Simulated scan of single mutants.
Amino acid sequence: MQITRQADYALRAIYHLTKLDPTQRAATSQIAEEQRIPPSFLAKIISQLSIAGLIHTSRGARGGVSLARSPEEITILEVVEAIDGPIALNECTSSPDACPFGENCPLRKLWCGTQTELIEKLATTTFAQFMSEASSPAASSN
């Protein structure tokens, strides 16, 4: 399983906004440059994050992008799902009929359990926690 490049870019954009003062706005050109995201790709991502209620956007000379909620309230899962939709390791995790073995598939339990663990980890990791871990000395030595 691999998240899309678009979801990765969305996580980077939120990460960038998390580092700003809560009253600050960032220009999309600044986010694109500092996070190495193609500007045309970022425009689509910003739109999706705005529709999901994760960021605010405003146009004009004093415009820009800012977080819609505090970093303590935004999870990694929300950002990934805003871009990629619900996480599914295999189609059988949501539809056992997709597999010829159905509920009796020997791998289905593994896929469902692993998917649940991944979703729980992403759902319980906020950007505030992520920022704290990213800036800790132990994180930089790994």
Rank of each mutant, 00 (worst) to 15 (best):
D21Q: 10
E73P: 10
E72D: 15
T114Q: 07
G53V: 09
S141G: 12
I46K: 01
T93N: 13
K19M: 11
A98C: 14
Y9K: 04
G113A: 12
H16Q: 12
A68N: 01
Q129D: 13
D84F: 06
F127L: 02
I46Q: 01
A13T: 07
A128D: 09
E33V: 00
P38T: 01
H56Y: 13
L122R: 03
D8P: 00
S40P: 00
R12W: 04
M131G: 11
A139R: 14
K19S: 11
T18I: 08
C99Q: 06
F130T: 05
G64S: 12
L77K: 06
D97M: 13
A82Y: 03
L17C: 10
T126F: 03
N104A: 09
E103C: 01
L107V: 09
L77Y: 08
V65W: 03
A26M: 09
K121H: 11
P71W: 04
T4L: 11
Q30R: 15
H16E: 12
A43P: 00
L67D: 01
L11G: 01
R36L: 04
F127S: 03
A138N: 01
P22H: 11
L89S: 05
R62W: 12
I55L: 02
T125Q: 06
I31H: 06
S47T: 05
R12K: 13
L20Y: 09
Q48F: 05
Q30I: 15
Q48T: 11
L11V: 01
L77I: 06
L122A: 12
S135E: 13
I51Q: 15
P22C: 09
F101S: 13
R25A: 07
T116H: 04
A61S: 07
C92A: 03
A98P: 02
I37R: 04
I46C: 00
G85S: 09
P100D: 10
